[in-house]
Write a protein that binds this DNA or RNA. Structure first.
Lengths: 191, 191
DNA sequence: AAGTTTTGTCAACACGTGTTGACATCTTGT
DNA sequence: ACAAGATGTCAACACGTGTTGACAAAACTT
């Protein structure tokens, strides 16, 4: 199957599979596991619902595939350790929270209440998030520092999901961000 | 209606209303708005589902009533400002997260993804949480400091909801708590 | 060009949901 | 004691869900 065929074919299983995955990622990041119906996802991808079960096995496996494809901490935390607080606070407060690098956090937050998504989140979070994050941090108590920083990040993201402007004025938001930068840096600092 | 009657009557509307409210609070704090069915709540209260609609009007109004009855920040933050970080960190890390004073936070977290519960949370959170919290804190930038501290509290609570032991050993958890205390105190400090 | 496999659509299913109205039973006032 | 109102149960409803199997059309193989 040549690249040309990949683009010109009317029917293309790998392409629709990818479309399904993209649509699922988008919707899960906005509404969470339970609130999203497979029909919404399929409609967004432009295909029938039944293809989800055919290609992924079911809703649960689709969710696992989405989590698997999300950007890991290596893509999120790249940069200097000294800049951590400043860099992440800008990302958390200024960037859109439902797509881009923060997508995976949104999904974790909005799907935490689901009995079926929760175990997947716990497993993936440990394997692909806390583990690499702690390793990236290094030093003493790396796991503790990673978990605390991750908790703070989730909290801020959640408040932005509930209310995008955090219920603060633009001027207040700047002060919020600066304060958050200091707090995050302190959370991961080795002393 | 004498107190004796209140206890001896087989049928007591105010009592069943209270039972319904208690059961709803308990279940919403454990599973969130969407995941809980009215039949579960009614079964826990020992009555039929239809009474929910009769007494509260519907699921949405029941949720609003639950949020209304939850302990406010006055019950959560009572104490000295200098002890804030230490006190709250103990509460967040050591106490059970699904009942007691933290119930309202659990409900906010687990129901944030619901399209119907989210507006109620936003409204109640502002009226009965951030507002009083900021007033309790006092000083410059009180709203900013309150929001940041609340974000951190939610993040930690969420991680405990996903995994009660935070995925840490008992020894690590102690260090996590100490670090969290410092971070929280720094979040609300006035300088 | 015919036959076979892949890819997508459609209809139906079994289930659970919140809500509603009719009915039964307890409680109270006269 | 009897009627009236309050309180609770039951059955059904309309709807949306994830999943499954039969069928149609496209794409590939020979």
């Amino acid at each position: 199957m040549t690249p040309t065929e990949l683009a010109t074919r009317k029917r293309n299983s790998t392409a629709t599979r990818a479309n399904l995955l993209d649509a699922a990622t988008k919707h899960f990041a906005r509404q969470g596991y339970d609130a999203v119906s497979l029909r919404e996802i399929a409609a967004e991808a432009g295909v029938d619902v039944s293809l989800v079960s055919r290609y992924f096995g079911g809703k649960e496996e689709l969710f696992a595939a989405v989590m698997d494809g999300c950007p890991g901490p290596d893509r999120i935390f790249e940069g200097e350790h000294a800049d951590f607080g400043d860099r992440i606070s800008r990302m958390l407060v200024d960037e859109p929270v439902v797509d881009g690098k923060l997508e995976v956090i949104s999904i974790m937050i909005l799907s935490a209440s689901s009995v079926v998504a929760s175990p997947i989140i716990r497993r993936m979070g440990e394997e692909r998030f806390f583990g690499p994050f702690a390793k990236w941090l290094g030093g003493a108590d790396a796991a503790v520092r990673a978990h605390l920083a991750a908790s703070i990040m989730k909290g801020v993201s959640m408040d932005r999901l509930i209310q995008d402007d955090l219920g603060l004025s633009a001027r207040e938001r700047v002060r919020y961000r600066k304060r958050l930068a200091r707090v995050l840096q302190s959370a991961v600092s080795e002393d």
